[in-house]
Design a binder for these strands. Structure first.
Lengths: 340, 340
DNA sequence: ATCATGAACCAAATCGTTTTAAATTCCTGT
DNA sequence: ACAGGAATTTAAAACGATTTGGTTCATGAT
């Protein structure tokens, strides 16, 4: 059913019908109601591609998904939750992690293709090429994380620095002195922030920073296992780990157990938890102390902010920094004297 | 830059330019080459929304993502890999798991919105409402999994029955007699197939089926832990588990350890592995025996089949059943006599 | 009686392509 | 030199909405 035909059945012009459905003021309340009712009854819905052509809007938000990122789904769920009521789609493009060139190209294509009204940028670097590119191309975009590029941009981030500072401080309070940090991929802002939080906590107690206690890499259980295992075989070994994600923590648990040590007694572990429905900190054995932040909520909020940005709110006004809770469970305990 | 302007610069008509770019035969090779080169040089690209309007194609494939499904990302990565070279997007809509009504509504909206050319259906039931709906609405769709609805439809599935039959048989070969099965959500085809494979293996050895040894549920570590733990506390306890996924297996491992038993010695475990880059069977401790099938490959192939379907290949011709490898690692061993 | 005002509606132009149907150019064989 | 047909190219009509710039008709003021 096309607009023309639908309008004729109503005895109205296409103009009036279109306006009635889009909520313009110059249509009488009576007519508007009738149009709305008949649209439902006769099943009329505007052809979305015609609308897109004439309005120039795409009705979609673009998200680039790195391979190997199990966090992604949770974030997307949040976005979608918020966009459910709007008439806006999520368009997903995947890219190989760490292939910067391909990634830049992808963003460029996405931005100029006209298929999306806005783009989400994940895991930015302090001087992120993608941000410069999107700014140059003039397409609205939101950054999930922070960057120090000097172009104005909207962002939403969690307080990574504070989270790791508090986690580290807590371990120090418990008497730990050799605390290892398993951080994210090198060069990313959140990795640097976490590093900073870690160092600050050490500095506050006058404990020297030892670069051998810090590793960088993707959030896989393998990275967690390998690094934890190699550190635990050394002497003196660390008595505590701050892990970057749930997966990394799984690897650390495995390493600890493989050496017949016990998490929570011999070795303390705190991890950052993005809150997954299928793998929870409470369910690990022993239950895992975490700095906790909901990726789903971040996704929902970022979708919301995107709508605001598209509605005209200036990007330079859109900045949100979310605090992170520290939740203590069984995986943290006083430093074992024996291990010192 | 619009087509009209671009054509004028080339001294050609819009028609010829459009045809040259779309690869029609009635354009001379010389002209085609010139058009292609100039398009790159001047940066002309057809307005995608105009193309969509006039061709009636959406240039996108719709995927509905259930919440809580960590498998989803891997599948999507595969799809995207295949679609990278095509000019086709992936449009993701999320829905709450187990809210059938909302899900049906979502599929209906997706199919009639004109935003996608085809839809992917995941985890079907033997008599799946979504399949009937999409067939009725006349939109092309592909099923990831199998269904017994009598409408013709394209599908790709792995041999769940064979996988679990072989896993169970292998455990029987090792002398296990009380083998527990942690299956997927009740009512789904793949769950039924796995159940069938399990029963067949038992039947072959004349071992009676005991419903108390089978559980159903989502693929979370919690389900794995709870069920395994409650079974292991009984007497006689099972000596082996067949787990539905990596997450479930994590839960089983945890349950086994929590009772001071050892996986691979006291209790054998085989799980189905969809192959995740961030959590691998080799990296578990002990390494996990799995029936293995790549979700990513399935995604890529399903994207490929979707393109074929859209190109006119009849749905009734598109059926693929993939075999599943059984890979033995440390988590399986002979049944411990003591436990009998 | 006339005119300005505003509410409600409408005709036609527009968005930027693809595609149909027709026109032109270029060969080839007689 | 020219008909006939193949090979190229083109003008104009879609596609289905939104939006610009009216028109109509009542109402109340002058």
């Amino acid at each position: 059913m096309k607009l023309k035909e639908f309008a004729k059945q109503l005895g109205l012009s296409p103009t009036t019908v279109s306006r009635a459905l889009s909520g313009y003021p110059e249509v009488s309340e009576k007519t508007r109601k009738r149009v709305a009712e008949e649209a439902v009854r006769l099943g009329y819905r505007p052809n979305i591609n015609a609308v897109r052509l004439v309005t120039g809007r795409a009705g979609a938000i673009g998200v680039v998904m790195g391979r190997n990122e199990f966090q992604f789904c949770e974030f997307m769920s949040g976005m979608a939750e918020r966009l459910d009521s709007e008439d806006i789609d999520i368009l997903v493009s995947p890219v190989a992690v760490q292939d910067t060139k391909a990634e830049i190209q992808l963003y460029s294509r996405l931005a100029t293709s006209g298929r999306v009204d806005a783009v989400i940028v994940h895991s930015p670097k302090p001087n992120d090429e993608r941000i410069l590119l999107l700014h140059k191309l003039g397409i609205p975009f939101l950054v999930h994380g922070r960057s120090e590029t000097n172009v104005p941009h909207a962002w939403l981030d969690i307080d990574n620095e504070g989270a790791i500072r508090r986690a580290t401080s807590h371990l120090l309070d418990l008497g730990h002195r050799r605390i290892a940090l398993i951080n994210g991929r090198d060069g990313l802002t959140f990795t640097l922030h976490r590093d900073k939080g870690y160092r600050e906590a050490l500095e506050q107690r006058g404990i020297p920073f030892d670069p051998r206690l810090v590793a960088h890499g993707q959030f896989t259980d393998e990275i967690g296992f390998r690094f934890a295992r190699s550190l635990l075989e050394q002497s003196p070994r660390p008595t505590a780990f701050v892990a970057g994600s749930m997966m990394t923590a799984l690897g650390v648990y495995r390493a600890v157990r493989s050496l017949d040590l016990v998490v929570g007694r011999d070795i303390s572990v705190i991890a950052h938890d993005d809150v997954f429905p299928y793998l929870t900190a409470d369910n690990m054995a022993p239950s895992l102390s975490t700095s906790r932040s909901s990726l789903r909520a971040a996704g929902a909020r970022l979708a919301d902010l995107t709508l605001q940005l598209l509605a005209g709110r200036p990007a330079s006004e859109i900045h949100e920094l979310w605090p992170v809770e520290l939740i203590l469970r069984e995986s943290t305990g006083p430093a074992a004297e024996a291990a010192q």
